[in-house]
Simulated scan of single mutants.
Amino acid sequence: MTRLRPLGRQETFREQVRGALRAAIISGELRPGTVYSAPALGARFGVSPTPVREAMLDLAREGLVVSRRNKGFQITEMSEEDLDHLTAVRLLIEPSTVRDAVPVIPEADLPALRGLAQNIVDAVEHADLIAYIEADHVFHLALLAYSDNRFLVDVVAGLRAQTRLPGLTPLLRGGALGRSAAEHHELMDLIEVRDSAGVEALMRRHIGHVRGLWAHGAER
């Protein structure tokens, strides 16, 4: 049964519940087209219905769910074409943005970024897909933040939230997700030696997994 992780510093309970629900939607744990009630989700996550209802209303504004009167919240569906288009836009934005950020990332920030990369690996080792999605989200948005363009970061956050990765469970069992998680450390290796071109190439390959490998649950 899914449970929330301990609250992080400067994180409200509502934010924690919202993050866990968003991750459950992205990973496919909450199935597209299905209607879930706040009490049922509260029992599933070990919390009361109120923060779940509040978090779901936030996610409705993001387009991840639709409120169904007197029933609950329906998880929005994404077509294969939608997912292709999302990936195409991310490929236009993220690799070049991170490439340009590499020279300006302070040396003092590298250990913290390395720790964020390790959080992704740890989540896979604990077979926690919710934590994996959240840790991956935090790491990539932290890199994009060095662009000093909050509008760009908000756009990518929205694109990542709309992405669906229903094939993560078989990839976790087969070990492919662990190999993909390890790429975050490879990315940090390239950042530490200021290899901007290498960072861009790895980012393109990494995002491609979302649509190619992960979305279909195929083995490498």
Results as ranks from 00 to 15, higher is better:
Ala123Thr: 14
Glu219Gln: 11
Leu141Gly: 04
Arg211Leu: 07
Met78Phe: 01
Tyr146Trp: 14
Ile207Arg: 06
Thr169Trp: 06
Leu168Gln: 07
Ser67Met: 04
Glu219Phe: 09
Gly19Cys: 00
Glu125Cys: 05
Ala127Ile: 01
His140Met: 13
Glu183Cys: 03
Leu152Glu: 11
Gly198Cys: 07
Leu213Met: 10
Gly198Leu: 08
Glu219Tyr: 09
Glu125Ser: 13
Arg99Pro: 03
Val199Tyr: 03
Val121Trp: 08
Gln74Phe: 01
Glu29Asp: 11
Asp128Val: 13
Glu62Phe: 14
Glu183Phe: 06
Glu94Thr: 08
Pro6Asn: 11
Ser37Cys: 03
Phe73Ala: 03
Trp214Asp: 06
Asn119Leu: 14
Ala40Met: 12
Val104Leu: 09
Ala161Thr: 00
Leu190Tyr: 00
Thr50Cys: 00
Thr169Met: 10
Arg14Cys: 01
Asp100Ile: 01
Ser196Met: 10
Leu113Cys: 06
Pro170Gly: 05
Arg5Glu: 15
Leu187Tyr: 06
Leu41Arg: 03
Ser27Thr: 08
Pro166Gln: 04
His216Cys: 01
His209Ser: 01
Gln162Leu: 12
Val156Met: 07
Asp100Asn: 11
Val98Thr: 00
Arg194Tyr: 08
Arg173Phe: 02
Glu77Asn: 02
Arg18Lys: 15
Val153Leu: 07
Ala161Gly: 11
Arg204Lys: 14
Val35His: 03
Val138Leu: 08
Pro111Asp: 10
Gln162His: 02
Gly19Gln: 04
